[in-house]
């Protein structure tokens, strides 16, 4: 009987302390870590079309189309198929593809989530967070590391 009362007292304590853990979402947004991996942002100006991101992508989410002169024509990324592993950002030598902290994206159909380079470019920064700022120190360790051959295709 004591145990039952203890249990009931515990829940009543929570009911009376008035604290809530959930937030009233659209009005109040929970904090997102600077390292959070959200929708991609792509910069055609930076991209050197080395295709490393396409290569490293574990589930063929990125599709790159180039012409005969190896000039980039299309950069397509299906953000509904992406598993947000951040490997594309990790291998990119010029920071042309980044994962913003933006987690709010919707589409009525799956097709709407297949982004081309224009749509990728227009992905907004989330609360003006620059993902590179939080990632820079470790990026140094990554870029230019390793003994093996670099496969630029």
């Amino acid at each position: 009987m004591i145990g039952i009362l203890k249990g009931m007292a515990t829940t009543m304590k929570h009911a009376l302390d008035g604290e809530t853990f959930t937030v009233s979402y659209p009005e109040e947004e929970p904090d997102v870590s600077p390292r959070f991996r959200g929708v991609h942002k792509f910069s055609q100006e930076r991209c050197i079309w080395c295709r490393q991101c396409e290569n490293v992508c574990p589930n063929d989410t990125i599709q790159i189309v180039m012409d005969d002169q190896r000039n980039g024509e299309q950069y397509n990324l299906h953000i509904g198929q992406c598993i947000y592993c951040r490997l594309c950002e990790e291998v990119c030598p010029v920071d042309a593809i980044l994962l913003t902290e933006n987690f709010e994206f919707v589409g009525d159909t799956k097709d709407e989530l297949a982004y081309n380079k224009e749509e990728l470019k227009n992905v907004p920064w989330y609360k003006d967070l620059d993902p590179l700022e939080s990632r820079e120190p470790d990026r140094e360790a990554w870029v230019g590391e390793g003994d093996g051959e670099v496969d630029y295709q």
């Binding site: 829940t11 009543m12 929570h14 009911a15 604290e19 809530t20 959930t22 937030v23 009233s24």
Partner: peptide
């Protein structure tokens, strides 16, 4: 609302 109070949530608002 009552369940939410016991479980630290806001519920309908």
């Amino acid at each position: 609302k009552i369940t939410a109070a016991f479980t630290d949530r806001i519920s309908v608002d």
